[in-house]
Amino acid sequence: MSQNALLVLEDGRAFAGTSYGATGETFGEAVFTTGMTGYQETLTDPSYHRQIVTQTAPHIGNTGVNDEDDESQKIWVAGYVVRDPARVSSNWRATRSLDEQLTAQGIVGISGIDTRALTRHLRERGAMRAGISTETLDPAELLKKVLEQPPMTGADLASEVTTFEPYVVAAQGEKRFTVVALDLGIKTMTPKRMAERGIEVHVLPATASLEEVLAVNPDGIFMSNGPGDPATTEHPTTLLKELLQRGKPYFGICFGNQVFGRALGLGTFKLKYGHRGINQPVLDRVTGKVEITSQNHGFAVDAPIEETVQTPYGTAEVSHVSLNDNVVEGLRLTGTDGRVLAFSVQYHPEAAAGPHDSAYLFDRFVELMEGRN
């Protein structure tokens, strides 16, 4: 039975609605995602750790939940905000409803609020701390609790979502390469996309040492997506510097792009409200092609778009940019002979959820390890 629920933002804006999922109280950074589908992948994406996610699409839950589309072992969002939850789920793959899944995993949500007004507010004021409660229904009281929560800026969260033990995703068919993937919040589909290309993927914890990485004798290094402020992520940045110094081919996605930027001596900054959804247009400045991408990030790399940067490892340049706001969406490192040594993107080419426009990037990683770039 649904209960009354309240959402309060840190600037005092409040929305009254009905509970969706578990009852109780939760806090996190309020953000929005524009995807009209793929809510199961969104909920189980570790990059959403400590975030209260608002779906801009009004009708959520119509295809239920299945056992194949999770991107990790659990739901990571701190809270969930929808306008019109489906009363009945209808899909041949569904095994239960979204409401049941949220309840089973203790995810506190709210429904029946004007998500358009909430989204406009976050676009104008920026992502901010928030709370959802079915217990504290006085806005002033809930606001006090919201203001006690830590902000996302300065949050080091990769260690909270990474795997505790290394594991291997075997290559499909003939094994061609071995890759170490540092898990900063990796999604299940990412090593699968590499395995499809004959890559044996050794997924290591975010705390893995240089010796542990080199012990695998990898042909390439990969760093995944993940939550938190990249400015606080010291160990992966230091590790990547050591690996770049040794000439290891590198591919980074999302958080891995930000770590790559820091390793190259570039800064990072927090976006006003971030990029989240599966309809984000990006220009590949190398090919001139535009791709529609899946994204989930609240921070970005601070790099000059029209200039190259000399680093101890080679020449760095911006390879991809957002066509919405000109934010850096990819980096490329080349040697003195013009050969690509490492690259990264700020979006999700594994397409979970999202379009397949960017799948070629995994092929580009293979070419990098073959020395054909």
Rank of each mutant, 00 (worst) to 15 (best):
V259Q: 05
R276Y: 14
E291C: 01
T237F: 11
Y273I: 02
G265L: 07
R262E: 11
G261P: 06
G267M: 08
F260C: 05
F255N: 03
H275I: 02
T238K: 15
P249H: 04
L240A: 11
Q245N: 15
L271M: 05
V259H: 05
N257D: 07
L271Y: 00
Y250N: 02
L271C: 00
K248C: 11
G247M: 11
F255I: 02
R285K: 01
Q245D: 15
F260A: 05
F260Y: 11
P281G: 06
G265H: 08
K248F: 13
D284E: 04
V282L: 03
T287S: 03
K241I: 11
G288D: 05
Y250R: 04
T287D: 00
Q280M: 09
L266T: 09
Q258C: 04
R246M: 15
K272S: 10
V290P: 03
F260E: 06
E242M: 13
F260W: 12
T237G: 10
V290F: 11
R246I: 15
F251V: 06
G274S: 02
G274L: 00
L240Y: 09
Q280E: 10
V286L: 14
F260S: 04
I253G: 06
G252H: 08
F269Y: 15
V282T: 02
A263R: 03
P281A: 06
K270R: 12
I253Q: 07
K289N: 13
R246T: 01
K270E: 04
T268E: 02
L264I: 12
L239G: 06
G288L: 08
F255R: 01
L239P: 04
L271G: 00
K248L: 15
P249V: 08
L266W: 08
F251Q: 01
C254F: 03
D284I: 01
R246S: 14
G267D: 15
F269V: 08
H275E: 05
V259G: 04
L271T: 01
Q258N: 03
G247R: 05
R262Q: 10
G288P: 00
G247I: 12
Q245M: 09
R285P: 01
R285L: 06
V259L: 12
R262I: 13
D284C: 06
T238R: 15
G256L: 00
F269N: 05
Q280R: 05
G265M: 12
R262G: 07
K289S: 10
K248Q: 14
